[in-house]
Design a protein around this nucleic acid. Sequence first.
DNA 1: CGTTTTTGACCGGCGC
DNA 2: GCGCCGGTCAAAAACG
Length: 305
Amino acid sequence: MDTSSLSQNYPAFDLNISMDAREKEEFEDGEIHVDNKTKSSSSSEKDERQALMEKLNQMRFEKEKLIEMLTISLESYNALQSRLIQLVQQDSDQLQNSRKRRKLETTDNSTITTLGNHHDTTYDSISDERSPNLPREIRTNISKVHVRVDPSDTSLVVKDGYQWRKYGQKVTKDNPSPRAYFKCSFAPSCPVKKKVQKKVGDPSTLIATYEGEHNHQHPLRTEMYFSSAQVGSPIFAHSGWNCSEYPSPKERVETGDKKWEALGSSGIQQFMVEQMASTLTRNSSFTAAVAAAISETITNHIFSE
DNA sequence: CGTTTTTGACCGGCGC
DNA sequence: GCGCCGGTCAAAAACG
């Protein structure tokens, strides 16, 4: 794998900090060689140095693997992004046609399908335009999210990154599956509510209906901001990933397709990054590899000083 | 023991 | 006015 091109495109991933020409040659050679002639140290020190060098080589190997994983992830991401934009365009066209046919549901829709590792999500945003005659202050944003789940799963949980407190459950007339009622865990300061129910005749689809707008930051975004110094780094800037600039998935869910269009691929990217981050942080081998890469960066800093 | 979930009771809107 | 229905409350239970 060509690590230099990755580092060129994404300087944040150039972990070969302060390597001189000789070190670089050794690194590209794949091995760190101990120069026994230049040092007049004891054999125990040599052993220790040898052990450390071996450890360093091991860590560098791990870093190579990590970069490889990231490159694969980025390639997958780019492929998904292209497909996503294509689907958004298709759905947008379809919705425009279907709107003409709708009588009762004069809703303003935007549909986007994201490819999570465990479910597919579709957004039908029924925003303010649903009731244009109402005064702006009493109109509330309502949106629907379709989530693919295991049909045998009865938990009625939709993972959207926010924390929710369940306050009720009802069996409704038109659906044998119960409807669960949630409030944002920041309530009462945050007015957002959500209803989750399985689709009639389709137990593999959950429909989450959101009401209102969060008046606080997305928990995942906050977590990323505090836990990662890399958020504002070139890798994010390069790919349009900027955690502070784009609305949260929830916020986007609640807005109409006009806002989606305005956001373009950047907003979509942000949502995908959050999905990816969520997935990757649950992967213990990935977090271990990240930890190894970080520790090596620190080691490189120490050795170069 | 504090927090979250469950679940029956209650309330208000709507149609008849 | 009455009954139906969706939404919310709040006490009890479950959970960590």
